[in-house]
């Protein structure tokens, strides 16, 4: 199918984008990379009167080091997460997750902001934002506000963004030498949405885990922190026993979707296998650092 007819506007500033949204009486969608929106329009799941192309707004671009955090503009393309040196050095989990996102051509156009604002629970970048403890910078007609990733993902495709607001940038606490990172997922074919996936951040004190942050995708209605598993690790030596306890605790953390191809119990099992592999892979790293 083809998209319903719409008007197309291309604002140069955030203020112009808000004006266009107001003028459309709210019957408008923001267009960034458009790689989720274009299929939704073609399938007529959405049919806005106006598309507001925000891809040319300079204030939504750029990756800059800002003290202890990395400010990543919402229009940063998936492919840039693979190549940008600031992301590789300061937000390594984004770099690790990027090869798992769709296919090369999709990564050339799709934006981090678009992926996070859509909040597909099966997408990689929303979960990674949770694991990194990122803050979302949101612009609205009344000014800018910041929302932690924890408070951003509310429900299936529901975020803290109010109608008309724009996701402007991510503020990611930069990686420290004591941090260990890992990301992986199970997908039936390369580029498919994952059956389940996870990103892990461990803050190590020698061989001991000082703090753990674990976020899963395809494991609930939103990307989700595995807080009980994290608690199993905090303050403990990273060894087989601690990992087994964390794997066991996942039952209380995840609320996996249940469908014909992948029963919830299978997803939980795969989540445990995945967590075991991710944490196990970090044991040697931790020992080397100690």
């Amino acid at each position: 199918m083809k998209a319903r007819a719409f008007r197309y506007v291309r604002p140069a500033t955030i203020a112009e984008a808000f004006d266009a949204f107001a003028e459309a009486g709210g019957e408008a969608s923001y267009l960034a990379g458009g790689h989720s929106l274009a299929p939704a329009l073609a399938l007529r799941l959405q049919a806005p009167d106006v598309l507001i192309d925000i891809a040319h707004i300079g204030a939504l671009r750029g990756i800059v080091l800002d003290g202890d955090s990395l400010r990543i503009g919402a229009l940063t393309r998936h492919a840039e997460a693979l190549t940008d040196p600031h992301i590789a050095a300061h937000a390594p989990l984004l770099r690790m997750a990027a090869p798992h996102v769709a296919h090369p051509a999709i990564r050339n156009r799709g934006t981090l902001g678009g992926s996070v604002a859509l909040a597909d629970p099966a997408a990689e970048f929303p979960a990674v934002m949770l694991a990194m403890g990122a803050e979302m910078e949101i612009a609205g007609p009344d000014g800018h506000r910041r929302v932690p990733a924890e408070a951003f993902f509310l429900d299936l495709y529901q975020t803290a963004l109010e109608p008309g607001e724009l996701l402007v940038a991510f503020h990611v606490p930069i990686a420290r030498p004591s941090h260990r990172w890992a990301f992986d997922e199970f997908a039936r074919r390369r580029g498919d949405y994952a059956v389940i996936g996870a990103g892990v951040m461990l803050d190590m004190d020698g061989p001991t885990v000082a703090e753990a942050r674990i976020a899963f995708l395809s494991a609930a209605a939103t990307p989700v922190r595995a807080r009980q598993a994290e608690s199993c690790l905090a303050g403990r030596l990273l060894d087989a026993g601690a990992i087994a306890d964390a794997q066991q605790a996942l039952a209380g953390d995840l609320d996996p979707p249940d469908d014909e191809q992948t029963p919830a119990a299978m997803r939980l099992h795969l989540g445990r296998v995945l967590l075991g592999r991710l944490l196990g892979g970090l044991i040697d790293n931790a020992a080397v650092a100690a």
């Binding site: 458009g34 299929p39 598309l51 296919h103 051509a105 156009r109």
Partner: peptide
């Protein structure tokens, strides 16, 4: 809908789905 890749062209030198951009 951006799955099959038959519509790939180069836009500013980068492989792009012709069906996913207006």
């Amino acid at each position: 809908m951006g799955v099959c890749g038959a519509c790939l062209v180069l836009v500013d030198g980068k492989a792009t789905h012709g069906c996913l951009v207006f």
